[in-house]
């Protein structure tokens, strides 16, 4: 564990709490892409098939939290606050993402086993899981401030992981090219959002696309 990785994980936790706060406070999931949340649930379930493999208490508790919270968010969006979800705004075709990621995982992986291919699939899928949300944002052209805080925390978590990998490469000679490539792409997807968040939200304005 190092500073960057711990901070990244805490930002990831924070992003989920901000999302839950947004839904509970406004009693609405408007502006949130169900498809992105569905993809995150798929990411956690396929990645943490090794849940019973012991690494540390921290690792196990975080995995349980990520699986449970992602499924709870699906419940909130699909059942509890179903009336506030507008599918006509959430039109990104996730079938292509799922298919492409599965294909890539079958071709580019460390070991061709069931668990390992699904782990690789989850890494690729996480990299692009935010696309339906960003697509929805670009369609509506604006977002509630709390929703942008959620996206910022999520993007910061990815950016900090890049620093963690640089740190681990120099201190442990840790190499994990699948995670590096996917993580770099994932962070790059946030660059436009970061720019507008910095220009508008941090200066007290509403998040609006130019």
């Amino acid at each position: 564990m190092n500073f960057f990785r711990l901070t990244a994980d805490l930002m990831h936790l924070l992003s989920i709490f901000v999302l839950l706060l947004k839904i509970q406070k406004t009693r609405s999931c408007s502006g949130i892409s169900f498809k992105t949340q569905l993809l995150y649930a798929v990411v956690f379930v396929t990645r943490y098939l090794d849940l019973l493999k012991w690494i540390s208490l921290y690792n196990t508790l975080m995995k349980i939290f990520f699986i449970a919270s992602s499924i709870y968010i699906l419940y909130l969006m699909k059942i509890k606050f179903r009336a506030t979800y507008d599918p006509s705004q959430d039109t990104f075709r996730i079938e292509f993402l799922l298919g492409a990621c599965l294909l890539l995982a079958l071709v580019f992986n460390y070991t061709f086993t069931f668990i390992e291919v699904l782990w690789t699939f989850s890494i690729y899928l996480e990299a692009v899981a935010i696309l339906p949300q960003l697509f929805m944002l670009s369609r509506t052209g604006e977002a509630e401030t709390i929703t942008t805080h959620y996206l910022f925390a999520l993007g910061a978590y990815r950016g900090l992981y890049l620093l963690n990998w640089i740190w681990r490469f120099y201190t442990e000679h840790h190499i994990d090219w699948i995670v590096w490539v996917a993580g770099a792409i994932q962070t790059a997807l946030y660059s436009d959002f970061f720019y507008i968040y910095y220009k508008k939200v941090l200066h007290g304005q509403k998040f609006e696309l130019p």
């Binding site: 990785r5 990831h12 690494i55 690792n59 995995k63 990520f66 460390y110 070991t111 840790h174």
Partner: peptide, 10 residues
């Protein structure tokens, strides 16, 4: 050095 196959990151 640690193997990437251990997947110790979240």
């Amino acid at each position: 050095s640690s193997s990437p196959k251990t997947h110790d990151e979240l």
